[in-house]
Every structure is written in structure tokens, then in C-alpha cells.
């Protein structure tokens, strides 16, 4: 999956499921400034796992991503890992 496609899917989920304003979704944006709290974080992880069919919960370590750009990279990494197995 191309990076652009990952970005599109993540952003679409954030707009649709978390009612965020699309114009705020830049790679630098961090989750706190987007108004996402720990409830959203957990919900987002499960929503994105379903969208990408990857296991984020067991692979995530604190500090793996703080910004949206970090999240795109993280998902890209998981998809690559999955395809290599």
C-alpha cells in the first residue's frame, strides 16, 4: 500500500469517526492539539486496526508516534512487516 493511500484512509477515518476538521490533519499535528484524549486514542487504534487489518495493540510502544506523521509511518511499517511474513 502506498503512503498516500495510508494517509487518505487514516484521515478519512479521523474526519468521519472522530469529527475532526480535515484542514487540521497535517503530519505535524499532534493528537492533543487535535483534541483527542485517551478515550479517542483507544478507539482510534481499534478503528485503524480494522481499516488496515494490522495489529497495532501488540506492536505499539509508548512514544512510537506523537504526531499524525508518526502514525502514518507506524502503520506503513506494520503493513510492510505483515507483507514480509
Amino acid at each position: 500500500m502506498q503512503k498516500e493511500e495510508i494517509i487518505k484512509i487514516v484521515n478519512r477515518a479521523l474526519v468521519k469517526e472522530f469529527e475532526l476538521d480535515e484542514s487540521l490533519l497535517t503530519p505535524e499535528a499532534d493528537f492533543v492539539s487535535l483534541g483527542l484524549d485517551s478515550l479517542d486514542a483507544v478507539d482510534m487504534v481499534i478503528t485503524l486496526e480494522q481499516a488496515f487489518k494490522v495489529d497495532i495493540r501488540n506492536n505499539y510502544k509508548v512514544g512510537d508516534f506523537g504526531s499524525l506523521g508518526g502514525l502514518y509511518d507506524f502503520i506503513e511499517k506494520l503493513i510492510k512487516q505483515k507483507n514480509n511474513v
Binding site: 468521519k16 469517526e17 472522530f18 469529527e19 478515550l39 478507539d43
Partner: peptide, 8 residues
Amino acid sequence: YREGYKAR
């Protein structure tokens, strides 16, 4: 909750 979460 957010509406999306309620739906879930």
C-alpha cells in the same frame, strides 16, 4: 461521546 463512538 462522539457520535461515531456511540454508533460503534
